[in-house]
């Protein structure tokens, strides 16, 4: 089941380009079905189901996808394995495409404020770093607010990163009021005419009412400074998360109105299939995927590529 020698993760294959991915797909399923027409029977259904389940797609969404596949391929047999893969990929894509909405950080009155939220260890600070670099490389001026005043050395982490990349970081001491830090950063960004302000927040479990209340407060404080702010509330989700990611998305959405999702850590063996359920049930736009350590490894989400990579990867997993 484990395959430590696999050279790349799910998104590694994305990097190699779609053509290559398609080949791998054909290789994988081709071996399984040994070419020619494919019977659409229970055995095949179970096989495909297993792949979706092992990609963290979840029981309910998997059942739905299989039903949709039967609509796409109504006969008793498909032409070949490629037709089956294409059919399933189409079903996946149908769910994801409505959520394929890239971030457009342009405010009527700058700064455009991106408030970054998520549970502990989901990759917020790393994502902020990559996002800041990306926006700066696009020619925008960027400022960071060190709103994670709780975790030991979180402020330092952001400051060190800011120094290395020559991006200003507004910070106070550890333990300071997060809303106050972000408030000050907003004022500074507005005064300097900065295009985009990215605000970090402390990681919090979505079940901690008091900490979710603190996020609401940050939102209120920003709204008082600019009714349009925060323009984007970006939820950072670890692709390794299982079905609980839906609860996370729902709770953060209820608390502060999540307007975009960044799916991180797709460079490992995790596949992030839970975003299908999130897209299906909550319809939150999928902005970015994180596929590595480097700044350029924060990619704009693409439903078509994601659907194919998800199935390719699941396929290999089942085989290993």
């Amino acid at each position: 089941m484990n395959d430590a020698s696999a050279p790349t993760g799910l998104m590694g294959r994305l990097r190699q380009g779609l053509g290559r991915t398609r080949n791998k797909l054909q290789e994988g399923l081709g071996q399984l079905f040994s070419g020619g027409p494919v019977q659409l029977d229970d055995e095949l259904s179970e096989l495909l189901e297993d792949q979706l389940l092992m990609a963290d797609v979840g029981v309910e969404t998997t059942t739905r996808l299989m039903r949709r596949l039967r609509e796409i391929l109504p006969g008793e047999a498909a032409e070949d394995s490629q037709a089956v893969i294409d059919g399933l990929a189409q079903a996946v894509e149908e769910i994801l495409t409505p959520c394929e909405m890239p971030l457009e950080p342009v405010a009527d009155k700058p700064p455009y404020v991106v408030l970054v939220v998520g549970i502990n260890g989901s990759g917020k600070t790393t994502t902020i770093g990559k996002l800041a670099r990306r926006l700066r490389d696009e020619g925008r001026s960027v400022m960071l607010a060190a709103g994670d005043t709780f975790r030991a050395a979180a402020v330092e982490q952001l400051q060190i990163w800011g120094q290395r990349n020559e991006i200003p970081v507004i910070a106070q001491h550890a333990g300071a009021d997060s809303a106050a830090v972000i408030h000050d950063a907003f004022a500074a960004a507005r005064a300097r005419g900065t295009d985009v302000l990215i605000a970090d927040t402390a990681g919090r479990l979505h079940t901690q009412d008091n900490l979710m209340e603190e996020l609401r407060k940050i939102r209120r404080v920003l709204q008082r400074q600019d009714p349009a702010a925060p323009h984007e509330v970006l939820l950072v989700l670890d692709a390794g998360t299982g079905q609980n990611a839906l609860n996370q998305a729902r709770e953060f959405h209820q608390a502060v109105g999540v307007s975009g999702i960044a799916l991180t850590k797709l460079d490992g063996t995790a596949r992030g299939g839970i975003v299908l359920t999130i897209a299906d049930q909550l319809g939150i736009p999928l902005r970015f995927i994180g596929i590595g350590e480097k700044a350029e490894d924060l990619r704009v989400f693409n439903a078509h590529d994601f659907a194919r990579a998800l199935l390719a990867s699941a396929r290999e997993e089942a085989q290993a």
């Binding site: 089941m1 484990n2 389940l53 990609a55 963290d56 299982g242 063996t269």
Partner: peptide
């Protein structure tokens, strides 16, 4: 909260 990947990672 880890999903299916817990098995792969733990084994590695």
């Amino acid at each position: 909260m880890t999903g299916q990947d817990a098995a792969n990672t733990a084994a590695a």
